[in-house]
Amino acid sequence: MSANGSTYDSVDYRQLGADYWRTDIIDIEPGKIHVRGYPIQELIGRLSFPDMIWLMLRGEVPGKTQSRLLEAALVASVDHGPHAPSIAISRMAVSCGLPLNGAMASALNTLDDVHGGAGQQSVELYRQIRDRVAEGVPLDEAAKLCVDAFVAEHGKYLPGFGHRFHPVDPRAGTLLGMVDEAAAEGAVTGEYARIARAIEALLASGRSKPVPMNIDGATAVIYAELGFAPELARGIFCLSRAVGILSHAWEQSGRGERNKGPMPRQMPYRYTGPATRHLEDDAR
Rank of each mutant, 00 (worst) to 15 (best):
Q66F: 07
A118M: 06
F237R: 13
V188T: 03
P50S: 08
Q15R: 15
A275R: 13
L125N: 01
A149N: 03
R234P: 03
P268W: 06
Q252Y: 05
E185G: 00
I129N: 01
S2P: 02
I129C: 07
P212H: 10
A249I: 06
T276M: 14
A204F: 00
R258I: 14
S67T: 04
G116R: 04
P50Y: 06
F161V: 04
I195T: 00
G116E: 00
G31V: 10
L47V: 12
R22Y: 11
V94Q: 06
R284H: 12
S77P: 10
F228Y: 14
E71L: 11
P50N: 10
L145P: 01
G235Y: 04
G160E: 08
A229S: 13
D131S: 09
T276C: 12
Q252L: 06
G97D: 05
A107N: 03
P39C: 08
R241T: 05
V151Y: 03
L246A: 15
I44G: 09
Y13E: 02
E257N: 07
M263Q: 13
D27N: 13
R127W: 01
N259M: 15
L98Y: 11
S90A: 15
S6E: 12
L232D: 11
L47G: 02
E251Q: 06
Y157Q: 15
W54E: 02
L203M: 10
L43S: 01
G173S: 11
A134G: 12
V61F: 08
V123C: 06
A3Y: 12
L175H: 11
V35H: 14
A220R: 00
G102K: 12
D79F: 05
D113V: 14
I28N: 06
A283L: 06
S2D: 12
V75E: 07
C96K: 10
D281R: 14
P262I: 14
M263C: 10
A152R: 14
Y126K: 01
R255Y: 09
S253V: 03
G37S: 03
M56F: 12
K144F: 08
I89N: 06
P212D: 07
A233H: 02
A187Y: 11
R22W: 11
H80N: 11
E251L: 03
D79W: 02
A187H: 09
I222L: 01
I53C: 13
A72L: 14
L158W: 04
L202P: 08
A93D: 01
E280G: 14
Y126N: 02
D131H: 09
V35F: 13
M52D: 03
L176Y: 09
